[in-house]
Design a protein around this nucleic acid. Structure first.
Lengths: 121, 121
DNA sequence: TTTACATATTCCTATATAGGAATATATTGG
DNA sequence: CCAATATATTCCTATATAGGAATATGTAAA
């Protein structure tokens, strides 16, 4: 069995970096295809094809105005992704807390703190 | 150009549903390969191959104990995904707020509230 | 060492790209 | 209707699977 189609779900669709760029660009406001082409320096057919994939999984909405097609990101379709990754939040939070507590405990004991494994953003 | 390798980054690696299942299963505690095979009803070579991909992108860590290999999810490698999707949070939050405010405003005016488009979790 | 157990890798195949080039479709203005 | 503009689709190709089957590798027990 080959890899699942990019149009099978949001997870597969956003695996492509250019599609993520497009979603970023279309998040703030709707834009015609031409704007995407110039803003992201991509070939027009390439943009159309990526938009097709994003549209098939509901990651963008479209509106026609004359001969232009205005696309905009449908942020809601990204929620499943955010929620799934969020399930793991407690694990990295836990790690951070443990590291922090360990460091603080050592500080209280006057020991030298080791270089942290993780970095808070 | 074909699709990027599944081992190119976490985004591509988690596009495969079985790999997400494996990550879910390995989140709470480390497990030997055999446990994954029985728990998720997958073929052993299949599990090994998925683990290989997950390992290549740092989504799991491994530890050998005798002839068993204990894998565990490295939640930290999922943070980029969570953070990227989180950028769009304000857009769906905004929608929710607007819907809610609209409903409340109508209620104050004694109008019938429409079925909500979105659902809070 | 020989055997058994646990896991990993190799081989094979059908399928799904992503990009480039060329072309088709849709809509507006003259 | 015809030309021009804006997008979409088709064709072609090299590459990367994911699963199944068979096999290889590594480690412990007898």
């Amino acid at each position: 069995m080959p890899r699942a189609a990019t149009t099978s779900d949001a997870f597969n669709a956003v695996a492509e970096p250019r599609r993520r760029e497009i979603l970023n660009y279309l998040a703030l406001q709707e834009r015609p295809v031409g704007d995407i082409v110039t803003a992201l320096s991509m070939e027009q057919p390439s943009v159309s094809k990526h938009l097709r994939v994003l549209r098939d999984v509901g990651l963008v909405h479209v509106r026609r105005d004359g001969r232009q097609m205005f696309y905009r990101t449908n942020a809601d379709a990204l929620r499943p992704l955010h929620e799934w990754t969020g399930e793991f939040k407690r694990f990295w939070r836990q790690q951070l807390t443990q590291v922090k507590e360990l460091a603080e405990a050592k500080t209280r004991r006057g020991e030298t703190s080791p270089a942290p494994q993780e970095e808070e953003r």
